[in-house]
Design a protein around this nucleic acid. Structure first.
Length: 623
RNA sequence: GUGCCCGUAGCUCAACUGGAUAGAGCGUCGGCCUCCGAAGCCGAAGGUUGAAGGUUCGACUCCUUCCGGGCACGCCA
């Protein structure tokens, strides 16, 4: 027996068939769930209430009939105590102690109960994450796209699927040409050395070049209208003139880039390298697996856009509207059409996204494409997904439709409930955020564990600080906004990263002591694992939670909601803490109990470690 | 104006996708270290789940209408 729920599920199905035969509605399920309250047993089946109407019988009668069949089933009675019907028609199940031990032992393998899918069931999952922009530092806005995206990628990898991460790098378009032109001017004048150019300086250049280009044409129009004096007019005209000049130079730079002018391309490439080096460094610190191989800039698709739009026009998918080309989406219930080409002939964000979908589905063979992107882009993705479907770009070579999913996330807010910014209203740089969390973590580690060496303290502080930020982000419901607070995430109390890391540290500490005091090597638990006998209620709570691990990982992956795994791990850590407080392990009354509890603790430690790893949080031995 | 998302304890968040008595943390009050890491554990107080209807044996969850808040709405990305 690997999983008691699977076993119970099968028993219930045959009991239901035996009880009602053909009268059983198609697709009737036992709907088994873990019981919330120990008084209702370990598991409960809620099928009877649902079947009541379809079968025209009172739910308790149905439940009793199923229960009677179960009692006759030897296989069922081998794992469970006698089923009880309660309330409106719940069937409560209490596992036999031996069955619980067997189930735990089965979980205690390398896979921790998460078996790899059959060869045919392995999916290719593309995860769009991170999404940095050229010449810009990573800021809080990128935090969630990176942390959530990476966690989703890890979740699907953990289930044994093939995951392809795609960092959709904003490296193309007029604003990019703008900064490239500005940098090139600087280089030509000998004011900028590409070898020593920093991302900070690039960011300043980006902003100033943008400001110049944006000088207000509307202001000039207003000045004309309100008849401002000639001096004001002259000033405005000079500004606007400068803007026009800068815009013209940007457009020229874009044309140069598009036609692979080496003078521009080399500058642009250098800007890309500087931006990405910083991005990868921060992702490394965040333990987010984002690398050069996983990065596909918008420039990758630039040369495909013309052909793509031509394809859409040729097949009548895109039509002309007010001079632009659009894909109409009324049949998908979307009023706003998706623009794929501007009046002037330029392409848009949506055009690039369509090209990316086509590549991900038709070249990479994606079964599923997951976008970890801000919720504010919901409409955009609804449009693009619908347009891609209409165009047939979501159809794989084997004819199956790929699943496109926008894993939308809410905004990070400050204490005042408005988007998290610095006091001066700037975006908070991710590196500053991490530094602050790590510094606070280091102070705490120094206070709580002064005996640790500085090197070790540093490493722990890094893991705790970044873990706290990541966990705070992952543990909230993805689509909701959340309030960012160093104090809360690093208070090390409640549902936080450090609390989970600490629970694991306590497990590990037991094993250090077990070796010192009893000479117990951990390899014993692999070679000749002792029996796990579940007696105390705290042991049972831990045991039942352990069995739910594979389901928790699966639920988190399928719903693309990492917070479900967080909640599970928090429950497990809490149950372990209660167990730890009331059930002596090393000082247990007898040898068998000691070994049983050691193995149970070890299993908790393995699940915590695995779970933290799936979330991209560093597990620790000490802290 | 239209559409999408969100309203749960004083605060920050959950509630296994429709199940039994809505749970945690902070804060408040009270216990627990001669005993495996007290960054912990045990307990108390705190709720008309924004409001009103509806569907259901059963609703925080689904439907309708309001009320509050956020966001987005063809030539930016």
């Amino acid at each position: 027996m690997t999983d008691p729920v699977t076993e119970l599920h099968e028993c219930f199905l045959s009991a239901m068939r035996a009880a009602f035969g053909g009268a059983l509605p198609e697709g009737a399920s036992p709907s088994l769930a873990a019981s919330k309250n120990p008084q209702f047993g370990d598991f409960q089946a809620n099928a009877a209430m649902g079947l009541s109407k379809a079968m025209g019988k009172p739910p308790r009668e149905i439940a009793s009939a199923i229960a009677e069949q179960l009692k006759k089933d030897e296989r069922f009675m081998a794992v469970s105590e006698s089923p009880e019907v309660a309330g409106p028609g719940f069937i409560n199940i209490r596992l036999k102690s031996a069955a619980l031990s067997r189930a735990l032992a089965a979980l205690d393998g390398v896979a921790l109960g998460i078996d790899r899918p059959n060869a045919g069931a392995v999916e290719t999952v593309v995860v769009d994450l991170c999404g940095v922009n050229l010449a810009k530092q990573m800021h809080v806005g990128h935090l969630r796209a990176t942390v959530i995206g990476d966690a989703l990628a890890r979740l699907w990898e953990r289930l044994g699927h093939k995951v392809i991460r795609q960092n959709h790098f904003g490296d193309w378009g007029l604003p990019i040409a703008m900064v490239t032109a500005a940098v090139k001017r600087g280089v030509d004048r000998g004011e900028i050395d590409l070898g020593t150019l920093t991302l900070e300086r690039l960011e300043r250049l980006y902003r100033s070049s943008q400001r110049v280009c944006e000088a207000d044409e509307k202001g000039l129009a207003a000045a004309v209208r309100f008849g401002l004096g000639p001096k004001a007019m002259a000033e405005l005209e000079a500004q606007v003139g400068g803007a026009r000049e800068a815009q013209a130079s940007s457009r020229a730079a874009l044309v140069a880039l598009q036609s692979h002018d080496p003078a521009y391309v080399s500058v642009w490439k250098r800007i890309c390298d500087i931006t990405l080096a910083s991005c990868f460094e921060i992702c490394r610190r965040l333990h987010a697996n984002v690398t050069a191989e996983a990065t596909a800039g918008e420039s990758v698709f630039a040369h495909e856009l013309e052909g793509l739009v031509a394809d859409l026009v040729e097949r009548g998918v895109a039509v002309e509207s007010e001079g632009a080309l659009v894909v109409r989406l009324e049949e998908f219930g979307i009023k706003e059409p998706c623009l794929v080409r501007k009046t002037g002939g330029g392409f848009l964000y949506a055009t690039t996204d369509l090209a990316a979908i086509r590549r991900r589905v038709q070249s990479f063979g994606a079964d599923r494409v997951i976008y970890a992107v801000d919720a504010r882009q919901s409409l955009h993705f609804r449009q693009v997904f619908a347009a891609a479907r209409k165009a047939g770009y979501t159809r794989r070579s084997d004819g199956a439709e790929a699943l496109l999913f926008h894993a939308a996330f809410g905004t990070v807010l400050g204490d005042d409930g408005t988007p998290f910014k610095t006091r001066s209203g700037e975006n908070v740089r991710l590196s500053d955020l991490l530094d602050e969390a790590v510094a606070r973590a280091e102070a705490a580690v120094k206070e709580k564990s002064p005996e640790l060496s500085e090197v070790e303290r540093r490493a722990i502080a890094e893991a705790v600080g970044t873990g706290a930020i990541k966990y705070a982000d992952l543990s909230n419901d993805r689509v909701k906004d959340y309030v960012f607070s160093f104090d809360r995430m690093l208070a090390f109390e409640g549902n936080t990263g450090p609390y989970l890391q600490y629970a694991l540290v306590r497990v590990r500490s037991i094993f250090r002591k077990a070796k010192e005091q009893f000479g117990i090597e951990e390899s014993v638990f692999e070679r000749s694992p002792p029996a796990m006998t579940i007696v105390a209620p705290e042991e049972k709570a831990v045991a039942l939670l352990l069995l739910r691990y594979p389901g928790a990982v699966r639920a988190a992956a399928e719903s693309c909601e990492p917070h479900r795994l967080c909640a599970y791990l928090y429950d497990l850590a809490g149950a372990f803490s209660s167990f730890f407080a009331s059930c002596p392990v090393l000082q247990a009354e007898d040898e068998a109990t000691r070994m049983s509890r050691l193995r149970l603790s070890r299993l908790v430690g393995r699940v915590l470690r695995d779970g933290l790893d799936v979330l991209g949080i560093v597990p620790l031995e000490r802290m």
